[in-house]
Amino acid sequence: MKSIPAIIGAALLVTAGIVAPLLATEIPQGARRSGYSFTAPETQAIQNDDTANPGMLSVLDGASLWKDKAGALSKACADCHHDAGVSMRGVAARYPAFDQALGRPVNLEQRINLCRVRNQQATPLAYESHELLALTAFVAEQSRGVAIETGADPQLEPFITKGRDLFMHRQGQLNLGCTNCHDDNWDKHLAGSAITQGQPTGYPLYRLEWQSLGSLERRLRSCMAGVRAQPYDYGAPELVELELYLMSRARGMPIETPAVRP
């Protein structure tokens, strides 16, 4: 933290006017870059090699949970969805998606829990629990390389708008919006780390800082805490709307789950 790059990073941000830009600019499609491209070659190498990527351990755990019978109906995910390589291919690239019964978007974790409740008559798994992360990583990994198309459903439109507003909105004691860092300053550094465009392409992902897998919501909560705002609770509609906006903002980018980030 007290290293030279950190100090330079802070100085850059100040000179870049991060404290007071007035109008946020969205990143054009052609300029969209995954967080992967900002990380060091050593970190990329961990993501490139499945045997080296600890996120793959969770995918393995998810594959075995997929076959475990659970709940009052004693059904496994596999009993209904069979081969995940077929049934789940491309699913993560469409999430968050609109749930008719709830009348609002749900993220992939919530969708899996809906299946537990509705189709297995089991209790929902806790957010960030090893089981939920493992199942989510397993399901999302089936979409590796699939281009994100979240937001195509017109019922999602008002929620994307809300998510976009949240992304632009300044908050916290530092009075910064997501856009101030991830649209306006993604080529800069902060405390030694690249700011990046804040793309959601790799979740759940293995973060070296966490030394474990974590969800996109966990990452967003870290960013909110970082500007000293009170983070939304896991599963809060606002977080899902932010996820939805981020995913629609990333349309066309390939899913990388389980990615690796510093």
Partner: peptide, 27 residues
């Protein structure tokens, strides 16, 4: 973080403070 965030799930306040230090101190 991992330690701190475990605490965070119980105690958002701690998390806010610690995350701030670990991530955005430079600002």
């Amino acid at each position: 973080d991992s330690l701190n965030e475990k605490a965070a799930m119980r105690e958002p306040d701690t998390s806010t403070r610690r995350e701030f230090f670990s991530q955005f101190l430079g600002l």
